[in-house]
Design a protein around this nucleic acid. Structure first.
Length: 337
DNA sequence: TGATCTCGGTCTGCGCACCC
DNA sequence: GGGTGCGCAGACCGAGATCA
């Protein structure tokens, strides 16, 4: 059953039927009611591909998960929960989130090119933004609508993004460590060109300086979103003459690796109480290690903010809006304090 | 072989007919 | 004359068919 057959059944034109179905104003209530009843009775459903052909829209937004060799299987659970909020906020507009996973940056770049050139989505949502993010430049150059989860220095940060207040998170982690009596704080953050890794470290270092502590390069580690990075961080810290008495990890993966490392060093002077991570990236660790995380993430709210941004860019709204989310302190961790 | 046409289903700008 | 309701025609895009 297509609109033509429905129109023939009603002895009306397809234009009239289309207008009635789409609630246009120049249709009488009598005709509208007749069309809607017939459509319901005959089981008419609009042909999605034809509708997209007509509107020039695909009806999908591409959510690109962080490119990582196998590692994004774990971080995927973090973004899946965000995607759920995103989906519910986009439901009414008929746009569905489509999740893409790539294993390396080359594959990610090729995928992005394909989405742009073949018009495979109405907008792109980038995650894991970088300090100098060439993906943002590409999307901007091609005038392809996009939103990011995270900031970047490109375009002077003037694009639509939703992000957590990583500097503030870093500051609060240091304040927490100081309240525990920490004298030598180590920080394990994300390296390469991770924007939020840099922001988190900046927050930690600023708070340390303001509280009279001198940051030590030997107590700063740049890693990846992987447990092995947590172990490497511990190896570095344990080699220092002045070993840390408190360690802050940007995420749970590094913390889990550190805990694994510590299991083999029971007398090193550190235990799980002298370690902390900012947020949980994976669904697994958010349950098992919930007390080790200082902040809780409202995934639904992140998804909702993303959904609003996606609607704006797909509707051609050129006004740039940035959303900075401040995360609440984890109640469980607070209780343990 | 390259150019042009046709087809699929939906939507909408514009114009026409009708009625008050 | 103006408002209302309806229909025509064309646009959207890509693949396949047809023609010169």
């Amino acid at each position: 059953m297509n609109i033509k057959e429905l129109a023939e059944f009603l002895n009306l034109s397809t234009a009239t039927v289309s207008k009635a179905l789409n609630n246009k104003s120049d249709i009488s209530n009598h005709t509208r009611k007749k069309v809607l009843e017939a459509a319901e009775k005959l089981g008419y459903r609009p042909n999605a591909s034809a509708r997209h052909l007509r509107s020039g829209k695909v009806g999908a937004v591409a959510l690109l998960l962080p490119a990582a060799d196998g590692g994004n299987v774990h971080t995927a659970s973090f973004f899946m929960r965000i995607a759920r909020g995103l989906q519910s906020s986009l439901k009414a507009s008929g746009i569905d989130p489509v999740i893409h996973i790539t294993t390396d940056r080359q594959g990610e770049q090729q995928l992005l090119q394909k989405i742009i050139e073949q018009n495979r989505a109405d907008a792109v949502i980038l995650t894991d933004t970088r300090i100098d993010d060439e993906r943002i430049l590409l999307l901007n150059d091609r005038r392809f609508p996009f939103v990011t989860i995270g900031q970047s220095r490109v375009l002077k940060g003037h694009f639509n993004w939703v992000d957590f207040h990583h500097e503030e998170m870093g500051r609060q982690c240091v304040r927490f460590a100081l309240r525990q009596g920490a004298k030598r704080i180590a920080v394990a953050t994300l390296g390469a060109d991770s924007m939020h890794g840099l922001q988190f470290l900046d927050g930690c270092l600023e708070e340390m300086r303001e509280s009279g502590q001198t940051p030590n390069d030997g107590l700063i580690f740049f890693g990846a979103v992987a447990e092995s990075s947590g172990e490497e961080a511990m190896q570095k810290f344990m080699q220092q003459n002045a070993k840390p008495d408190f360690i802050i990890f940007i995420n749970d993966f590094l913390l889990m690796g550190a805990c694994h490392y510590l299991a083999g060093l029971p007398d090193c002077g550190l235990d799980e109480k002298s370690m902390l991570c900012a947020t949980a990236s994976s669904d697994f660790s958010s349950r098992v290690m919930s007390s080790a995380c200082l902040f809780t993430v409202d995934h639904e709210e992140v998804g909702r903010q993303l959904g609003e941004a996606v609607l704006r860019v797909t509707q051609g709204d050129n006004a740039v809006k940035s959303v900075l989310l401040t995360l609440p302190v984890n109640a469980i961790r607070h209780h343990i304090i």
